[in-house]
Simulated scan of single mutants.
Amino acid sequence: MRRKQVINFFKTFILEIYNYESNEGMLYLKLHDLEKQDYITSSWGNDGEKFYRISQIGNNILDTHYKQNHTLFRNLIEE
């Protein structure tokens, strides 16, 4: 996936989380997709719970996206 596609994927993922409140199964499918693409990692806790953490790749993509949006927003305000 190219950077723009990845950013769109994360945007869609974040927006879709709100739709998953009544359907947790879909949320876990999305998390699994992110994990397969190395954007997040997971680990199991002692009581059988699964924890997710953003990977360095995912963090770099989000950081780039943040910087792009911050610059765009600042330019809009300064006009």
Rank of each mutant, 00 (worst) to 15 (best):
M1S: 09
R2Q: 14
R2P: 13
R3C: 03
K4F: 04
V6T: 13
V6C: 03
I7P: 01
I7M: 10
I7A: 07
F9T: 09
F10Y: 10
K11A: 13
T12E: 08
I14H: 04
I17C: 12
I17E: 08
Y18C: 06
N19P: 05
N19Q: 10
N19V: 05
E21F: 15
S22N: 12
S22Y: 04
E24W: 09
M26V: 12
K30C: 07
K30M: 14
L31V: 04
L34A: 01
K36A: 06
Q37F: 00
D38H: 10
W44V: 15
G45M: 08
D47C: 04
G48R: 07
E49I: 04
R53S: 13
R53E: 14
I54A: 10
I54L: 05
I54T: 11
Q56S: 11
Q56V: 07
Q56M: 06
I57E: 04
N59H: 13
N59G: 05
N60Y: 03
H65E: 06
H65C: 01
K67Q: 11
H70K: 15
L72H: 02
F73I: 08
R74M: 13
R74P: 01
N75A: 02
L76D: 06
L76M: 09
L76I: 14
I77E: 10
E78Q: 12
